[in-house]
């Protein structure tokens, strides 16, 4: 029986340089820094990191034909997972709060909306790093890098398979839209290999 593990994270620390990079501003002046700092404070109050994942052995993978097929059908994934005995399927989100801030400031201050967009992008990346590091520690093995639906030859439609397996709406409040976009928007799903 396959267990979906759910975890919450309240202490994600984004890297300011990365936020500025996402915001398209590598040389911030005082005004931009002030904008970023005030946005960070506002964002911190609403960020809610959650992740769920499964670790699947080869046999367990065989029991889930849809996923098995998807993996077999992607040369990029085959290459990524070569020599891996297990795979990890994960989903993570930082919650609806940042979407609300982007919606609010999109109406009245697009510069702030842009900043929240950048903070969200950086925060979800950092969250994924934390999740992967934890999984890696728990398994006592290294993970490959994260490969998401829509990368390389892995169709975006794979999102539906990932959602069928993990049921992220139930575990972490992450939903899939008709367009295969996720809501909340600052979210990631990924497949990784566990290196032997």
């Amino acid at each position: 029986m396959i267990t979906v593990v759910t975890k919450t994270y309240n202490n994600i620390e984004p890297d300011n340089r990365e936020i500025l990079r996402y915001a398209g501003c590598m040389e911030p002046d005082n005004n931009v820094n002030t904008l970023m700092q005030s946005s960070l404070v506002e964002a911190a109050a609403v960020l809610s990191g959650k992740a769920c994942y499964v670790v699947l052995s080869q046999e367990e993978l065989e029991e889930i034909p849809e996923l098995n097929q998807v993996i077999k059908g992607s040369q990029d994934l085959q290459y990524l997972l070569r020599g891996c005995s297990k795979i990890v399927v994960m989903a993570a989100t930082i919650g609806v709060g940042i979407d609300r801030l982007m919606a609010k400031y999109g109406k009245i201050a697009p510069s702030k909306a842009l900043m929240f967009h950048a903070i969200g992008a950086e925060t979800i990346e950092k969250l994924c790093d934390m999740v992967c590091q934890e999984i890696s520690q728990e398994l006592g093995a290294e993970l490959t890098y994260r490969f998401s639906p829509g990368y390389g030859d892995l169709p975006l439609e794979t999102q539906r398979t990932v959602f069928d397996i993990l049921n992220p709406p139930k575990h972490i409040g992450l939903t899939l839209q008709e367009s295969t976009l996720m809501a909340p928007s600052k979210s990631v799903t990924a497949i990784m290999g566990v290196k032997n």
């Binding site: 915001a23 398209g24 501003c25 590598m26 911030p28 931009v32 904008l35 510069s111």
Partner: peptide, 11 residues
């Protein structure tokens, strides 16, 4: 000048 600065000026 960068995008955030452009936007702040525009606002």
């Amino acid at each position: 000048m960068y995008l955030p600065q452009l936007l702040m000026s525009a606002e």
